[in-house]
């Protein structure tokens, strides 16, 4: 798959994106020189601990960065056009979004059908009646009885509501969906259903997904490629199988080791934890942001920020193409 991917043009290309936070006199970097691509039809995972800048990256793509935050440098190119200056034209129509909590993602006072019709007619020129029919089809596709089109959100369970939200996101036929922790608020069995549904519908339509999560399990089951973020920087990026099976960056190794595995004697082992915590924006260390928590850090790591080696991992230990053990 990776060969064919390199030959097609990327759907979304982010290069050297930085997002700054203005705090009185200070300028803090929340997203730092981030570059990655999303190809048509693929599911890219964005993973990292809380505060890594995952949501902010998603907001930046949609042009939803508001003061005191601002995009300080970089380019976002979607389908051949720069959108970092003017994202409103693609918002919703070409790129749409799904948020974490389905309980608050729907307007409580509007029938789900009305909300769908509103979302459809915002981007597609059709009559109310046509949009209504389309809304019904969409509901059926996400596994909701179309006869409930006139129901209010509060009559649905969390999982059902997230299905409605997915229908809402798919309504204008976007080519990219940014899903920000779409299943975190749901219980585990529902999580799997929702992810399967999202994956299936996007595969059918050739829609790409950026799936934001902090759950390595979700990454493993759902994504084609994964980008690991740490303190607003890209730590590692690559094919999901490769990154999970042979992580190159010590942070990725830590994340993988910290993921519970269900096997016969898993309950005996104490789960690994990466020592320390992600730094606040004010206290991002010099050099590699991860070095204070890293077992392998050397003198260079403390001074200089590592570039991305081999299009894969930003870690000085990979400088000579050698792998750390």
């Amino acid at each position: 798959m990776s060969k064919t991917r390199e030959m097609t043009a990327p759907l979304l290309e982010i290069s050297h994106l930085s997002v700054m936070l203005k705090k009185r006199r200070d300028r803090l970097k929340a997203v730092d020189d981030l570059s990655f691509k999303v190809y048509p039809g693929e599911i890219l995972g964005l993973v990292g601990e809380s505060g890594a800048g995952k949501s902010m990256t998603g907001s930046a793509i949609l042009g939803l960065i508001d003061p005191p935050l601002y995009i300080s440098s970089g380019e976002i190119i979607f389908d051949g056009n720069r959108i970092d200056q003017n994202a409103s034209s693609i918002r919703g129509s070409k790129i749409s979004m799904i948020f974490q909590d389905p309980l608050v993602s729907l307007n409580p006072l509007r029938k789900i059908g009305d909300q769908l019709v509103e979302a459809i007619r915002t981007h597609i020129n059709m009559s109310k009646a046509e949009a209504f029919d389309r809304a019904k089809t969409l509901l059926a596709e996400v596994g909701i009885d179309p006869r409930r089109i006139n129901a209010y959100p509060h009559t649905f369970s969390g999982g059902m509501r997230q299905r409605v939200v997915i229908a809402l996101a798919l309504a204008p036929e976007p080519s990219l969906i940014i899903a920000d922790e779409p299943t975190t608020a749901l219980d585990v069995s529902v999580q799997a259903q929702i992810l399967d549904l999202l994956k299936r519908l996007c595969r059918e339509r050739g829609t790409s997904i950026i799936l934001i999560t902090h759950d390595m399990g979700v990454i493993a089951e759902t994504t084609d490629r994964v980008a690991v973020l740490y303190a607003g920087r890209l730590a590692e990026i690559g094919e999901t199988a490769s990154v999970l099976n042979s992580p190159r960056h010590p942070y990725t190794k830590g994340l993988v080791a910290a993921t519970p595995r269900i096997d016969a004697d898993s309950y005996k082992k104490k789960l690994f934890q990466i020592p320390g915590a992600m730094p606040d924006l004010e206290q991002i260390p010099q050099g590699c942001a991860f070095h204070p928590r890293c077992d392998f850090a050397n003198a260079q790591c403390k001074i200089q920020q590592p570039p991305l080696f081999e299009d894969r991992s930003a870690c000085w230990l990979l400088k000579d193409g050698s792998e750390i053990s």
């Binding site: 918002r91 919703g92 129509s93 749409s96 608050v104 307007n107 509103e118 996101a169």
Partner: peptide, 23 residues
Amino acid sequence: DYIRLAVALGQSKRQVYFFHALP
């Protein structure tokens, strides 16, 4: 969130303020 979602889905200010917020 439903307002943020409406904005993220590209709905106009008028739609966001009057369809979603006002009620």
